[in-house]
Amino acid sequence: MTIRGLKRLRNICVGLGAAASAVALSLSPAQAAGDLLVAPTRIVLDGQRGTEIILNNIGSETATYRISLELRRMTAEGRLTEVSPEDANELEQAAKEMIRYAPRRVTLPPNQPQAIRLGVRAPKDLADGEYRVHLLFRAIPKARSVTASPEQADGFSIALTPIYGVTIPVIIRQGNLSATAAIANARIEQGDEGQAFAFDLSRTGDRSTYGEIRVMKQGVNEPLLLVRGIAVYPELASRKVSLPVPPEVAAQLKGPLSIEYYEPRNIGGGLITKTELVLR
């Protein structure tokens, strides 16, 4: 017998945090219909047959959500760009075909979580490699009819409804895969939004690398710069990583530094690669 409970207290804290940040941006902190929470934020299936994802309606109204499989490719700048179904390559097509999930559409009252079950049915002759899709969760907006808009004697009115959502990667690893990474060409760049610390992160092997980047200075315990969730996907041999430099850090970002790339703590937190340099 299993009793499952979802702890709500932390959720309320999340809600307060979101509301507080909304206050800073607008005067009306109430949340709109279609707001959503998704957990976890990344799925790696390395031999496991399936998992569950939690989708929660954190808006103030009942909303209908649609869950779909999307394809994304990483650019050399580390951005994820959309790939239309007709442009899918063999690997992406195979990934899409082996994933089963349900439900694909769900209507949830406010603060109602729903588990989405996801399973993998790999064909027997599946070639070794890393297969990836991105699972998209989005709210379907309520239909708005043209006649509902106030009639205007002159000119026109415009209603642009945003559909907003979240994608999380679903990665399936087949076979015994490995990858290594290396860091090179660290430099300071001047962008539109101030200084950025940039470097090239290269990857070799047959799977992606994923982890956090720490920029350390000799004699300083805390990282000067820290960013989590830096991935290099198999479609790339190298990508640029650009970290914005806050003004208070800019003066310290000189002299002997090290750039360290670690795996996430929940899978061991091992060092993937590290490089030392002197920045003038």
Binding site: L25, Q31, A32, D35, L36, L37, P40, T41, P162, G165
Partner: peptide
């Protein structure tokens, strides 16, 4: 313990061009 993420649209904010008369 799962990592989570949320996306919310701030209420009352929509892409609005106002009223336009040609």
């Amino acid at each position: 313990i799962l990592e989570e993420l949320t996306v919310t649209k701030d209420a009352g904010t929509d892409l609005d061009f106002g009223t336009i008369v040609t």
